[in-house]
Design a protein around this nucleic acid. Structure first.
Lengths: 223, 223
DNA sequence: GTCCGATTTGACCAAATAGTCAAGATTCCG
DNA sequence: CGGAATCTTGACTATTTGGTCAAATCGGAC
């Protein structure tokens, strides 16, 4: 393992063999499988998950599931692929020409919303990275790395212009990742500590409020 | 300290059967096993780890390892047990009578030091919680919950006295957990983004500096 | 309806894995 | 040293798991 994902996934296009148009049933079942697999991989990681678990969750026999994705690895790649781009979008959206505090408020808010709406995706990455990022390692070292350095440069400029308190931009980005993904990744812990409170409407707004208050005050330039 | 996990672990004491004094070899080998198991469980989680992996890492045959811990579960319990108390100590050490900013600076610093010194322990918990905290769930719902609520009350008082900016204490605690554990749990990602920079002396001090700056400024009362 | 490719699955296999056991090796203590 | 208790391991078993296959069923274009 440890490849750029693109190559593997749509890997049947090669070799002159005309790729068949996917049928309606294929589209539906692949979607069902990816959804089930996301949930399973997000909870137990690649090695801790079984094809049977995924098949059961997808309400499908194991051979049928393997008809759509021939190997456990293929499912894993597909799920990661399916989720990766979305994950970067908010960071990409930071606009160097915008107002620093406003841009970062927006970034944090978007990340928190993603954690709330798709916690499984966050946990999927968390598991992959805990395992040492064997599959997305190359992706992290190339695309993510470039993106982070680009946006860090933007933030560094803002700091230089006195529009943000002096702070290391990369560590600021890490801090934002940490705080926003925490609500998805450590959901079980948060539920253990807060109980039913987590279910109450407005819980996520309250969390967002707290994170935004602390982080934005933390980087607002002091007079 | 007595914890929830006790019951399962040293379960042979009961039944009048006198527990033998552990021999020197036992003490050494159990230590070796726990160290190896921590590393393996921290990387792949309980389900993703194999007894063989642990045995290999402990430079020991599998049956020999199973002579010391009869089941995979037993090793897992023992490793968690071995690490749990340490993990709570810093939060417990927050002193209601101290200076708020100073107490929180100390708490953050201690947590960051623990992440740097024993990242595997942090990842072990991360894996356990991602899996839904099947083993330490009761612990989280009892001891951790109580402790968090106690310390949240302390922080709430500080806020009430105007010694901290108005912020939800529980979310502040979560934010501190998130940011401090991030450097251990997401080490692979951080290395991917920063490369060899992570190895340079002073990297952790720099991280600590950034986190402390942002968080402490974020909660310092505004005039 | 008919037919052909697409879909589904029961039965199966080989490898991996948790755990057992009895016999041999080592350590400890007098 | 000598013997008992402790420790170690090769060989083994039962179960789980990833993956295959051929045969049965289904769906849709004509």
């Amino acid at each position: 393992m440890g490849e750029v994902l693109d190559a593997k996934l749509d890997g049947e296009t090669e070799e002159g063999e005309a790729k068949r148009q996917p049928t309606r049933i294929q589209a539906i079942n692949r979607e069902i499988i990816l959804e089930a697999a996301l949930e399973v991989f997000a909870t137990h990681g690649f090695r801790g998950s079984t094809v049977d678990q995924i098949a059961t969750r997808a309400a499908m026999s194991k051979p049928n599931l393997l008809y759509y994705y021939r190997r456990k690895q293929d499912i894993y790649y597909a799920v990661l692929q399916h989720t990766l781009d979305d994950w970067l979008a908010p960071l990409e959206a930071i606009d160097a020409e915008g107002d620093p505090i406003e841009q970062l408020r927006r970034y944090i808010t978007l990340k928190l919303e993603m954690s709330a709406e798709n916690p499984a995706a966050s946990r999927l990455f968390a598991n992959e990275i805990l395992a040492g990022a064997p599959v997305i390692g190359d992706f992290l070292r190339s695309r993510l790395r470039t993106l982070v350095h680009d946006k860090a440069a933007v933030i560094r400029r803002w700091v230089g212009e006195g529009r943000l308190a002096p702070v290391d931009p990369v560590h600021l980005i890490f801090l934002i990742w940490a705080t926003t993904q925490h609500y998805a990744d450590f959901d079980a812990q948060i539920r253990a500590v807060l109980g039913s409170q987590v279910e109450q409407p407005g819980f996520y707004e309250q969390a967002a409020q707290a994170v935004l208050t602390i982080v934005l005050n933390g980087i607002r330039p002091r007079d």
